[in-house]
Amino acid sequence: MSSFNQALTSTLGKKLIMALTGLFLCAFLIVHLIGNLQLFKDDAGKAFNDYAYFMTHFTPIKAVSYLLYASIIIHALYALILTVYNRKARPIGYASFAGDKNSTWSSRNMGILGTVLLVFIATHMANFWWKFHNDEVPYIEYRTDLNTLETQVTELNASEFTDYQNFTQDGQEVTRARDLYKQVAYAFQNPILVAFYVLAMAAMSFHLIHGFNSAFQSLGFNHRKYIPIVRFLALWVFGIIIPIAFAAMPLYFFFCK
């Protein structure tokens, strides 16, 4: 398999790894967004909390999540390796370098954008993922009357309850879950955090417009008939829709809740 090794350690191969991990992260973002849209549902967070449980307990998704963590680490690590490598390719810089005349700012500063995103991911995971996994979020019980479909919500204490439950009792559907929704609502009362989230989404927009396009280039896909589709997706889906939708979440909680 030395041919594979050789291929993957070449400059082209390193970029291939960047492209594949990057595209995987892009695909994850779509799933993540669809799930997170549950936050906008006005059901005291039930749909969202159900979703959170599903995502953390369904085995195939758990497997994918490890791939996801690996992707983030590999993507960042290779970015670092490539940056160092590329710096070495020009040990003496220019006194005058008019990069703005021939390229976009974001294309030249993917490292900075990526670092912002990495910090964001760390913050994001500390806020939600870590707390969710370490029992630091409150619990909640939903009781829905199956006849009237009215829901009663009760906060639970950790001692009363250890994991997700869903059962029917006396004509009522009872769901007990970790209330990640509340944690979200709580976290997004912090204006600094909200500002950081919005800023990070802006960085993500620029990172993804360039990154999504470039990934196809690195994979060797640049066909004049089909590349407009890639450009379109990069701009509209990854550059506009996804970042705006994500940015809307903290703003929604900050201003509307």
């Binding site: 400059t11 390193k14 070495k88 390719a89 021939n102 390229s103 294309s107 030249r108 470039s214 280039q217």
Partner: peptide
């Protein structure tokens, strides 16, 4: 030589 980061410069 360095790697390509598709700046298109």
């Amino acid at each position: 030589f360095g790697a390509c980061t598709v700046t298109k410069a």
